Simulated assay, not measured.
Amino acid sequence: FTVHHDLGDTSASSVIACMGATPRSAGFVGEDAYRGRGVSYCATCDGMFFRGKQVFVIGGGNAACEEALFLSEIASSVTIVLRRDQFRASDGVVQKVLAKDNISVRYQTSIVELSGEAMPTTITFKDNASGETHAESFEPGFFGIFVYTGTQPHTELVEHLVDLAPDGGILTDESMATRTPGLFAAGDIRSKRLRQVVTAVSDGAIAATSAYAFLRR
């Protein structure tokens, strides 16, 4: 392999791709301003900060539904905000969501703005059918918004050398090997169910060991 970078070219017999991934934004005003201060993209990471509080989950896919179910065991109430009139998730997951007493669904609704001071206090919702908007206010720190509109793995540098899954992640075997001999992938750039630091570290250890074995062969 030849890796091109700012300092020149580097030759390597093996490469481990670890460029990570970025959660897709929902796009409402105030999303970036309150990221980490009321806006989260990971229920298993930040859910405990909202124990006994009200949370909103944006998204209608399997990930959004599964995280809503997780949050329902922590938060006092969970509201799923769907921009369409139906879920994209599988029927089995949707039925579990609808069966939970403390989960409600707002269909054909979008969050268009989040505002407040140090912590957000007001959410502005839009009725996607009528176009009308209305604002709801809360005590500071009383609610959270969890965004699940997808994740974008950063595969651009190697996408011509690997196979990609429908979620955009790189497909590997258990040794973190891609379809190109000597090219391995680790962390959030892979297609995987759980994108967390602990799984990325595990991937990295396996990929490094596999790359070493590849070089010895």
Rank of each mutant, 00 (worst) to 15 (best):
R179M: 11
E136C: 01
V15I: 15
N62H: 10
T121Q: 12
R217S: 13
V147Q: 05
D46M: 05
V112D: 07
T2C: 09
A99E: 14
V112P: 06
V93K: 00
L157C: 06
A177S: 15
E73Y: 08
G38A: 09
A213C: 06
E67N: 07
A33S: 13
T209W: 08
C18Q: 10
F146L: 07
Y34L: 02
F214A: 04
P153E: 06
T133H: 07
S191K: 04
S11V: 12
E113H: 10
F142L: 11
G144D: 01
T180Y: 08
I16L: 09
G131L: 04
F138S: 00
K96C: 12
F146A: 04
A43Y: 01
T178H: 04
V112R: 07
V39H: 06
S202C: 13
F56P: 03
E132R: 13
G150Q: 08
K192W: 04
E136P: 02
S77T: 12
L7K: 15
V201T: 14
S175E: 12
G116I: 03
S76Y: 07
T149A: 12
V15F: 09
G182L: 00
V201P: 00
L98D: 11
G168F: 08
T180S: 14
T155G: 05
L161I: 05
A177N: 05
D85M: 11
H134P: 00
Y107Q: 13
T10P: 06
K192M: 11
G20V: 05
S210I: 06
S137M: 06
D173C: 10
S175V: 00
L215T: 03
M19H: 14
V15Q: 07
I206H: 08
M19N: 13
A17G: 01
V81P: 08
S11T: 14
E31Y: 04
I74M: 06
L183P: 03
E73Q: 12
Y34N: 04
Q86D: 14
S191E: 00
G131K: 03
R37H: 07
N102M: 12
F143L: 03
L114R: 01
F70H: 11
H134S: 15
T22K: 14
G204Y: 09
H154T: 10
P153N: 07
S72I: 02
L161R: 01
T2F: 11
F56L: 01
T172K: 08
H160V: 10
K53C: 02
V3W: 13
A211T: 01
A43N: 04
R217E: 15
R195Q: 09
D188C: 00
L7D: 13
S104A: 15
E159C: 11
T124H: 05
A200P: 02
G92K: 11
S11Q: 15
R88C: 09
H4C: 08
V198L: 04
G131E: 02
F214Y: 15
T2I: 13
F1V: 13
